[in-house]
Design a protein around this nucleic acid. Structure first.
Lengths: 193, 193
DNA sequence: ACAATAGTAGACGAACCTGTCTAATCTTAC
DNA sequence: GTAAGATTAGACAGGTTCGTCTACTATTGT
C-alpha cells in the first residue's frame, strides 16, 4: 500500500467494477448476468468471488462508485467564481449533457432502488448520495444543508431526471433547471431583503 | 358484451391482470415470474397465453391499468368546488397517503421504464399517462396542457415521488406539494395582475 | 344446434442464472 | 525465501425463467 501502484493497467477487481458500472447502468442490474460481467471484464469467476461475497457485493461497489462519480462530476462542472444561480444551473448540465450524448439511462440510484428494493446496503448508499448532493447544493448557494431551499432544489433535480427518463427527452431537466434558478434567485433575494 | 356480466366473480383474464398488478408493483416486474402470477391468480398457463402473446403483453395490460387507475384516483380525490391551489394539493395526497399505508413502491411508470427500458409499448403507455396527467393538472388550475406551469407541476410531482421512493419517506412529496401550491398561487396571481 | 371463444391441467424443453468447487500458478510484502 | 493474497480456467449443481404443446371441457352468442 505504501509502494507505488503496479504497472498492470487495472486490477481484476477494478476491471470487474468498471465493467459492472457500464453494464448495470446501461442494461439494468437484474438483466445483466454475473457471467457477462466476468467475461467482458476479462476476469474469472474465482476472482469475482474472491473479491465479492456475491452479486449484491458487486452491485454495492458499483453504486458506491456512482455516488463518488456524481460528486466528481458535480465538482467538475462547478465554477466557484460564478454566482449561486449560475452554479445551480451548471449542476443541472450533468443530466442534460448525458441525455444529449445518449449515455443517459436515468438516475442510477432510482434504478437500483427499483431493481433491488429489499437490499439495505443499497438503501444506505442512496442515503449517502443524497447527503452528498444536499451538501453540494448547500455549498453552491451558501445555505445550510438542512434548509428548505436545499430540499427544494433536490426535488427539482429528481423531477427533472425522472421526467427525462420517462420521456427520453431533456425538456424536463431544462424545466427543472429554470425552476431551480428562479427558486435560488428568490431565496437569495428574500434573504437579502 | 351487450348482455349483463356473468355471475363469475372475475374472468381469468381480469384475474391475471389483477394479480399481476399486485405482484408487479409490489415486487417488481422482472422479479415476478409468470408462473407465480398464474398460480396466484388461479388461472392456468393455457389461459395466460391465450389472452396474452407473452409476458410483455401482460406487463402492458398491467401498466395500462395503472394509468387508468391513476386517472381514477386523481379524479377521486379532486373537489371541483375548491380553488386551484387546493385542488393541486389534493392531487399530491395520492402518493402521500400511499406512503402512509406502506403500499407505496414508487411510480409504476418509472419502475417499468427501469425494468423494461427497451419495450416501445411501455414507452407509449408512459407517454399516455403523462398526457393524462398534464391534462388533469391543466384542468385543475384552468391552464392549457401545453403551458409551462403544467410542465412545472409535473416536474414537482415526479420529483416528490422519486424522492419518496429513494428515502422511503413522505417528506419529498410534502416539499413538492408545497412548492406546487406556491407555484400555482403565483401563476394565478401573475395571470390576474 | 353450432361454432367460436375461453378455460383446465400439467408436462416439457431450452435457456439462463447464481454460487461452489478443484487445482494450479502468479505476484507481492516482508 | 516464504507465506499470504490474487488470479486463472472451467466444470458443475440446483434453481429459475419463459414459452410451447397436447388434449380435453365449459361457456356463450347467434
Amino acid at each position: 500500500m505504501s509502494t507505488s501502484p503496479t504497472s498492470s493497467p487495472l486490477k481484476s477487481r477494478d476491471r470487474l467494477v468498471a465493467t459492472a458500472t457500464k453494464l448495470f447502468y446501461a442494461n439494468g442490474i437484474n438483466a445483466t448476468g454475473i457471467d457477462t460481467v466476468i467475461a467482458e471484464s476479462g476476469a474469472t469467476k474465482g476472482s469475482m468471488y474472491h473479491h465479492f461475497h456475491n452479486k449484491d457485493g458487486l452491485v454495492a461497489a458499483y453504486l458506491r462508485g456512482e455516488a463518488d462519480g456524481w460528486h466528481e462530476a458535480a465538482t467538475g462542472v462547478d465554477d466557484s467564481s460564478k454566482g449561486a444561480v449560475e452554479r445551480v444551473a451548471l449542476m443541472f448540465t450533468i443530466p442534460a449533457t448525458a441525455i444529449a450524448t445518449d449515455s443517459f439511462h436515468g438516475c442510477p440510484f432510482t434504478n437500483a432502488m427499483v431493481e433491488r428494493p429489499a437490499d439495505p446496503a443499497i438503501a444506505e448508499i442512496v442515503s449517502d448520495y443524497r447527503r452528498v448532493m444536499a451538501a453540494h447544493v448547500a455549498e453552491l448557494i451558501g445555505a445550510d444543508p438542512e434548509d428548505t431551499v436545499v430540499a427544494q432544489v433536490v426535488v427539482l433535480y429528481d423531477g427533472g431526471v425522472t421526467g427525462a427518463k420517462q420521456t427520453r427527452s431533456a425538456a424536463p431537466v431544462l424545466t427543472a433547471s429554470a425552476m431551480a434558478q428562479e427558486l435560488v434567485r428568490a431565496w437569495i433575494e428574500g434573504r437579502r431583503g
